[in-house]
Amino acid sequence: MTYAIQARDLVKRYGDVTALDGVDLTVPTGTVLGLLGPNGAGKTTCVRILTTLLRPDAGTAEVAGVDVLADPRGVRQRIGLSGQYAAVDEYLTGFENLDMIGRLYHLGARRSRERARELLRQFRLDDAADRPAKTYSGGMRRRLDLAGALVASPPVLFLDEPTTGLDPRSRTDMWEVIQGLVAGGTTLLLTTQYLEEADLLADEIVVIDHGRIIAQGTADQLKAQVGGERLDITVADPARVGEAKRLLEPLGVGPAVVEEHRRSLLMPVSGGAAVLINALRQLDVAGIGVDDVGLRRPTLDDVFLTLTGHAAEESENAGEAVEQVREGAR
């Protein structure tokens, strides 16, 4: 197997903030790696190092077989980057933006123009091609920015939070576009805060938090690591959620999480429908009304909660959580 991206022990500090604390990554050619983590986890720092924009304090990296530190220009010839914020020039039209990038890749005047038109068509921007990008919606800018990363048809692509800030419709559009690219054999490193996005697009997921890798594997492996199914119950009376928890906890294989304002209780279980029936019977006997009940496979949200002890959106006490995971792994 050949690797499109190989990074070893990347470290980057900003003053006393350690943005990356020894990160290793390997991405086989033609696959998609999802780099998943909350805000401030170190995703952008990692992308910036691999795309030659930032020098690490320690560590080595190779992209498309070229050493990032020794030959940054060689790397730049083989990658496309769409950064966290769409870097389109809003005074230029969509066409002019892409044509400019083609020229800077030294494709030549004719090829640059052709490629720009091709990409505008592919990204359904042909109607807006000759309007200044200032007039584009957020989703259109994002697509134009992504098109910019593809001008030279690079074998390795980096997308830093490609759907953050998009409305649901534009997000689904973007997913389709990305799936199309991946089907064409491009190696992709994608960062995201959205667990469903990594689940949908990535072959392999690396979860990072506070600059460290806290878990990695396929979506299924991560889910397995967190245990099997989840029992998800919403009780009718918010005052009785605690009581329901005490009652049902012996049936689970891990602690139940209660969200009082949603009157819900979430608990890992094993045993499928039998557990479900048993739980309902006990609640019925105790006279606790149930509004909604379900058995579902863990989402990556659950993965994150289990691994770090906090949801993907917030990041208090993460240091402790990392220790727990480490112990759990031994």
């Binding site: 924009l53 730049r76 010839q77 980057l81 914020y85 800077l104 030294h106």
Partner: peptide, 17 residues
């Protein structure tokens, strides 16, 4: 500020251009 310099720096263009 708009990240356009980042885009330029990720291209194989002349760094002084």
């Amino acid at each position: 500020k708009k990240g356009i310099i980042d885009r330029f720096r990720s291209l194989p263009m002349s760094p002084s251009a």
